[in-house]
Computed example of a mutant assay.
Amino acid sequence: MNLVFFDLESQNLFQDVGGRENISKLRVACGITWSTQTNDFSVYWEKDVPALINELRSATKVIGFNLKGFDYLVLQPYAPEVRFASIPTVDMLLDLQKTLGFRIGLDSIASATLGAAKTADGVQAVEWFREGQLEKIAEYCKADVEITRRVYEFGRDNGYIFYKSKLGSKLKVAVQWK
């Protein structure tokens, strides 16, 4: 059993590529995985995308936040022959959206469930990429993978997680992440 937690940061923003409909043009800046098999992080830069895709394809399950609506779509141009939909995936955002009826941010569930906050955001990561501050991107992406893993494990072990409402209330939502 090898669970692989995954997140990536892009080189560009939606406005740089003509909008969200051109997500495949964002290009990979950095991808980070954390594997239960190695109990460690792996860092992948754009030149390493084939190795990243191989790790994802060999996983028992890939777990992340908005994988199907973002990360996999950014990766697709690098491997047009790969059917990312066939990779066993837990997309925590989609699971929560189905249950709640609306989208929710990782920061909302991380702060409510773990008392932890994201260290930056995707816009900041693109700025770091453009400034050549690649280690900052990797550290931010690692932090997101770690938060994702901890929220997933909390939900798996307890059958629920918490999130913050738009008004700031802490609410509970059931999850089935076995």
Rank of each mutant, 00 (worst) to 15 (best):
S86C: 06
I87T: 02
I87S: 01
I87Y: 03
P88I: 03
P88A: 06
P88L: 07
T89Y: 05
V90F: 10
D91Y: 04
D91I: 04
D91H: 08
M92T: 01
M92R: 00
M92W: 00
M92H: 01
L94M: 12
L94K: 12
D95F: 00
D95T: 02
L96R: 00
L96A: 00
Q97E: 15
K98R: 14
K98E: 11
T99K: 15
L100T: 03
L100Y: 03
L100D: 02
G101H: 02
G101A: 01
F102M: 10
R103C: 00
I104L: 12
I104E: 00
I104R: 01
I104Y: 00
G105V: 01
G105P: 03
L106Y: 03
D107W: 04
D107E: 10
D107S: 07
S108T: 11
S108L: 09
A110M: 06
S111M: 13
S111F: 12
A112L: 02
A112S: 05
T113N: 10
T113R: 13
T113W: 14
L114E: 03
L114C: 05
L114G: 01
G115W: 10
G115K: 05
G115N: 08
A116R: 13
A116C: 11
A117G: 12
A117W: 10
A117K: 15
K118P: 04
K118I: 06
K118M: 10
K118D: 06
K118H: 07
K118R: 14
K118L: 09
T119R: 09
T119F: 04
T119C: 09
A120Q: 07
A120Y: 02
A120F: 02
D121Q: 07
G122V: 06
V123H: 12
V123D: 05
Q124T: 14
Q124P: 02
A125Q: 03
A125E: 03
V126W: 12
V126I: 10
V126K: 06
V126T: 11
E127A: 11
W128K: 08
F129N: 02
R130V: 11
E131G: 10
E131N: 14
E131D: 11
G132P: 00
G132V: 02
L134E: 10
E135N: 15
E135Q: 15
I137F: 13
I137G: 09
E139K: 12
E139V: 04
E139A: 14
Y140N: 02
Y140I: 04
Y140H: 10
C141M: 06
C141H: 02
C141P: 01
C141K: 04
C141F: 05
K142W: 08
K142Y: 04
A143I: 02
A143F: 09
V145M: 04
E146W: 10
T148P: 03
T148N: 10
R149V: 06
R149M: 14
R149D: 05
R150M: 14
Y152N: 04
E153S: 14
E153P: 07
F154P: 00
F154W: 11
F154S: 07
F154L: 08
F154M: 07
F154Q: 07
G155F: 07
G155W: 08
G155H: 05
R156S: 12
D157C: 07
D157P: 01
N158W: 13
N158F: 12
N158Y: 14
G159P: 05
Y160R: 05
I161D: 11
I161Q: 05
I161C: 10
F162S: 11
Y163Q: 10
Y163M: 12
K164C: 06
K164D: 06
K164Y: 13
K164L: 15
S165H: 07
K166D: 15
K166V: 06
